[in-house]
Simulated assay, not measured.
Amino acid sequence: MNWIWIAIRAAGLTGYLLLTISLLVGIYSHIPRKRGSFLTFHQIIGQVALLFIGIHAYLLIFDMYQPFSVSELLIPFTASYEPVLSGLGTISFYLLIIVVLTSDFMKKVGQSAWKKAHYLVFPLWFVSAIHGLFLGTDSASLWALALYGGSVLMVSMATIFLVWKKLSKKQKQSPVVT
């Protein structure tokens, strides 16, 4: 049994699941009276997701079937194996680094820059879902389809709720012209 291959898959799936949980908790924290400890949990889970995704990428160097070079991992779309899908994984990793670092240094970068950078979590999550769904070796399995389909459904519904909530809040705040 190829333990490196298993570890690569496990780290990638764990990173994706943690990223999904962090995103959902971040959206959930916008519900009034639900903030507090959810924000700390949200941050920690995001950082741990970054760690697992980093492990996933690092272990690809040692894969016996399709090893990646360091440059293939760091430079998007240069991989010899599935360059587009691999490049999407690299881009989502970089975006996650930006989101985590701006969150860790929010006071230094300012709330406005942090907020703009933080919204990168939506495209990075979507791109990582595409990366995992179409490049993952387990993607055709029923459990993997359920995992990706369920996460896409949950994040989509939560995002719609967040947008609806923000729009209804803006409508309540804007004066009615008669």
Results as ranks from 00 to 15, higher is better:
101 L>K: 04
133 L>K: 08
124 L>K: 02
114 W>K: 10
97 I>E: 02
136 G>V: 00
118 H>L: 11
115 K>Y: 13
132 G>P: 05
97 I>C: 04
100 V>C: 08
134 F>R: 05
110 G>I: 09
112 S>C: 05
132 G>F: 03
134 F>I: 01
124 L>G: 03
128 S>Y: 01
132 G>S: 13
129 A>N: 03
109 V>N: 07
97 I>W: 02
133 L>G: 04
105 F>K: 14
130 I>A: 08
107 K>Y: 12
123 P>I: 09
104 D>S: 09
120 L>R: 03
111 Q>N: 12
105 F>G: 06
124 L>C: 08
98 I>T: 12
136 G>N: 04
112 S>T: 15
107 K>R: 15
122 F>C: 10
117 A>P: 04
105 F>M: 11
108 K>G: 03
129 A>E: 03
110 G>L: 11
98 I>C: 11
121 V>T: 13
111 Q>K: 14
102 T>V: 11
117 A>D: 10
111 Q>R: 12
99 V>W: 04
132 G>H: 05
101 L>W: 08
121 V>E: 02
101 L>V: 12
129 A>D: 08
116 K>L: 15
126 F>R: 01
132 G>V: 00
111 Q>E: 13
104 D>A: 13
120 L>N: 06
107 K>D: 13
136 G>L: 01
120 L>G: 06
137 T>R: 14
112 S>Q: 13
121 V>M: 12
